[in-house]
Design a binder for these strands. Sequence first.
RNA 1: GUCCCCGUAGCUCAGUCGGAUAGAGCAUCAGAUUCCUAAUCUGAGGGUCAGAGGUUCGAAUCCUCUCGGGGACGCCA
Length: 582
Amino acid sequence: MKPIVAELVASALRALPELAEAADGIDLDGTVERTRDASHGDFACNIAMRLAKPARKKPRDIAAIIVAALGDSATVDKIEIAGPGFINFYLSAQAFHAELERTLAQGASYGRQAPKEGPRINLEFVSANPTGPLHVGHGRGASYGATVGNLLEAAGYPVHREYYVNDAGRQMDILGASVWLRWLEANGVDVAFPLGGYRGEYIRNIADEIDTAGLDVPTAESVARGLPGDSDDDKDAYVDALVARAKALHGEDGFDRIRQQALESIRDEIREDLEEFGVHFDEWFSEQSLTKSNRVDDALAVLEERGMLYKQDGATWFPATQFGDEKDRVVVRENGVKTYFASDIAYHFDKRERGYDHLIDILGADHHGYVTRVRAGLEAMGYEADDLEVKLVQFVTLYRGGERVQMSTRSGQFDTLRQLRAEVGNDAARFYYVSRSNDQHLDFDLDVAKSQSSDNPVYYIQYAHARVASVFRQLGEKALTWDKANGRAQLGLLGEPQEKALMTSMSRYPEVLELAANNRAPQHLVHYLRDLANDFHTYYNAHAFIVDDAGLRDARLYLVSAARVVIANGLGILGVSAPEKM
RNA sequence: GUCCCCGUAGCUCAGUCGGAUAGAGCAUCAGAUUCCUAAUCUGAGGGUCAGAGGUUCGAAUCCUCUCGGGGACGCCA
C-alpha cells in the first residue's frame, strides 16, 4: 500500500515543477511512513518539511500546494495537513479490501518481490570448523543466516548460500591425531592423550567406525618414543609431535585416510544437523579445494603483481595498514606455511571471481578483528570495500529456571545444537535465535521456549494460524460452506474496530519484509508477527466469525483467510512451521 | 592501551534512511468470564529514553565528551 501513496505524492510533484526541482534527490518512498496513531490517518508524508528549506517556503504552505495537486483517488478517503506540515492520508476501505484480495490471490508469494537479475549475492554462514558437532552458538548463526537468505530471496535477489569448510591446515591434523589415538586406545595401545587434542566422546565413535584396513597397529613404545612433554603452557609441541609420528608410522597416505574419514564423518554430521534444522546450503566449499587448485597461490600472485606484498624477517607480509587495518599481516610464515589469512583472502577473492557481486559473511562475534583485514585483501585485489558485508552474531546464553545454563564441553552440560533442538524443538529454536538483533547478546530462556501457552510468542503466533484452520473445520461441522466470492463482495460489512486494526496490520506485511531484508534484520518480522497475532486474537475474542448472517460470515472468513496467508508466509520466512492444528 | 556493541517502565525488550502525545509482553492493581479451541478476556497505573553539550522546523534515534556494562584485539586455526 505504501508504494501507492508514494506514487500519489510523486505524481502531484510532477505537476508542480517548482517543487519537483527542490525535491530532486529525495527518495519519495522514504518520506511516506505509517502513522503511529490512527488519529493521524494511515500514512503520513513529511515531504513538505523536507522541502521547506530548498523551496524557501513554509512547510504548511508547501503541503497545501501538494494537497491541491493530489486530486481524487479511490484509494484515499481524506487528506489532511497536520502538525508542522505533515500530509496525512486516510485510506479508503476499498483500498484495504483490494489488499485482502491481493493477499488471497497471491497466496504464498504475497509480500514477495519479483525476482531480480542482480546483484547476485553470496551468503556465507555457519562455516564452523569440522572438528566437532555444532554447538548452541552456531545455531544462532545458522538461524540468522538461513532467515536472512530467505528475506533476500523474498526481496527478489538471487542468493547463493555457502558453507566454508575449513578442512585444511593444522586443525585437521590435530583432529586426525585425536581419532588415531582413540583408535590405538581401542586396540589396547595406551598413549597419553594430548591436552591440545579433541577430547569429545564423538572422537571415540569416529575411531570405532573408520575403515583402517591395511593400517598396522603400532606398539605404545613406538608411538611415544622421544616425544616432548605435554603441558598447559605449551599444548602445541606434544600434539604436533604426535601428528608427525602418526605420519611417520603410517605414511602421509595412511594418516590422510584417518584424517579424511574423521573430517567427512563430522562434516556429514553437521550437514545432517543443519538439514534437520531446516538450514540448507547450495554449496559446501572446501578449503582443501582452494589449496589443491593453487588458488591461494593465484591470489597471492595477484597481490604480488599489484605490489601488495613485501618480505620482512623471512615472512611475507600484506600491508593491511594501507587499508585502515591497525597492523600489517603475515600471509606466508617464516617456515613457509601460508597463514589462515592467506586462504581467507583467496577464498573471498574466489567468491568474487565466481561472479557474485555482493558478499555477505555471517560470522561469530569473536571474528570481529578479522573483518578489516579480509576487506583490505579484497580492496588490494581491485574490488570495492563495500563488496563485502559482514554481519557479526553475538553470543547466546541459555537460561533454565532463571539460572544461567553452563555450556562448557568439559562439564558435559548443555552444549550442542542437537541437544537444544531436542529440548525446545526446531520451531522455537529458529524463532528465538532471530528474535533479537544479531549484534546484541541473546538470552535464550528454555522454559519460555518450551511452554505451550500464550506467554510463548512462537505458540501465540502459530496458534493464530491454527485457529483460522480450526474455524474452517467448525464451519464444516456445522454443514456450512464459505462463499469466497460473496465474501469479497460483502467486505463492506467489516466495520468493527478490530477488523480495521487487523486489516491495517496485515497490509504492513510487505513493508516489514522489505525493511527486514534491507537491514538483514529478521527481528522486525518476529515482532511484526507477534503484533499481527495479537490483533488476530483480539478480533477472535471480540467477535464470532461463524454467524448466521451469510454475508457477514463470508466476509469475516475472507478476512481471516487472508490473515492466515500472511501469518503462514511470515513464519515460512523464519523457517517456523504454520500448523493447522495444535 | 586500541576498536566494536549496549544502557528506554519494577523485569525482559520493541522503537532501522530523525517526525506528531516514547510502545509491547510479563509483573502489579481493578473488573469480566458456562464464549467458534482448551493453552482466558477487558481496562488502569507505571518513564529525567544513563548524564552533559551540539546539529535543526523537529533527537530515544545523528555528532562530541563523561559514567556504567559486555566483547574483540596472535608469524593460532
